[in-house]
């Protein structure tokens, strides 16, 4: 497969299988055995987004996010929902506007909240959340699994795919700032038209 990919051919694939069982987690951590088990149990998630692209400037707004998560048994629905909502917003920031920049002397160029841009309440999209509670052997208490970081991972990927579909090629670097999206759209990143 690596050989085919190296030849420049597009590799696409899909499939599904049985989720692996969680490994035996023994060992005392600061949160005890049970916490460790919840941590190492495999989580699954799937996000879909609807975005609006300003083609002339590359500015992207995320309008709607759907997030499905298998985090095992949901013990505290309010807390779990809040983790996904927060993770989605953080993921949007990661995808579009948040990124540390460093000067040559290794000091951060944007060490302030005006230049390191978190998403604001005015940017918050509609978020629909579905918990898919799949019983997992060796998971945490009552079959619970971790949740906090997962929504952070799928959101930028979903936004990147939506943008790739809109502009015909992927933006190769996070955050996908307006300027990077515009550069990609006009082909400048591949030596295209200026």
């Amino acid at each position: 497969m690596a050989g085919i990919a190296a030849g420049g051919e597009l590799l696409l694939g899909h499939g599904s299988g049985t989720p692996p069982s969680a490994p035996e987690a023994v060992g005392v951590t600061c949160v005890g055995d049970q916490g460790l088990a919840a941590w190492v149990a495999p989580q699954f998630s799937c996000h879909a987004v609807r975005v609006r692209l300003d083609r002339e400037t590359g500015v992207v707004r995320v309008l709607e996010v759907s997030a499905a998560h298998d985090s095992g048994t949901i013990i505290n629905p309010i807390g779990a929902t809040g983790q996904v909502q927060g993770g989605v917003l953080m993921g949007i920031g990661q995808a579009l506007t948040e990124g540390t920049r460093y000067r040559d002397d290794a000091r951060q160029q944007n060490a302030g909240l005006l230049e390191y841009k978190l998403q604001t309440a005015a940017d918050a999209p509609q978020i629909q959340i579905e918990f898919v509670e799949v019983p997992t052997a060796n998971a945490g208490p009552s079959g619970a699994k971790g949740i906090a970081e997962a929504p952070n991972v799928a959101t930028p990927a979903a936004i990147a795919n939506a943008l790739a579909k809109l502009i015909g090629r992927p933006v190769r670097q996070l955050p996908m700032t307006a300027e990077r999206v515009w550069e990609t759209a006009i082909g400048a990143d591949e030596g295209g038209v200026q």
Binding site: T57, V59, R61, L96, T97, L113, L114, K117, Q119, T120, A121, A122, D123, T177, A178
Partner: peptide, 12 residues
């Protein structure tokens, strides 16, 4: 104005 987010912005 060109803005990267909807509020707390300074004009690009």
């Amino acid at each position: 104005r060109l803005e990267y987010r909807r509020a707390m912005e300074i004009a690009v």
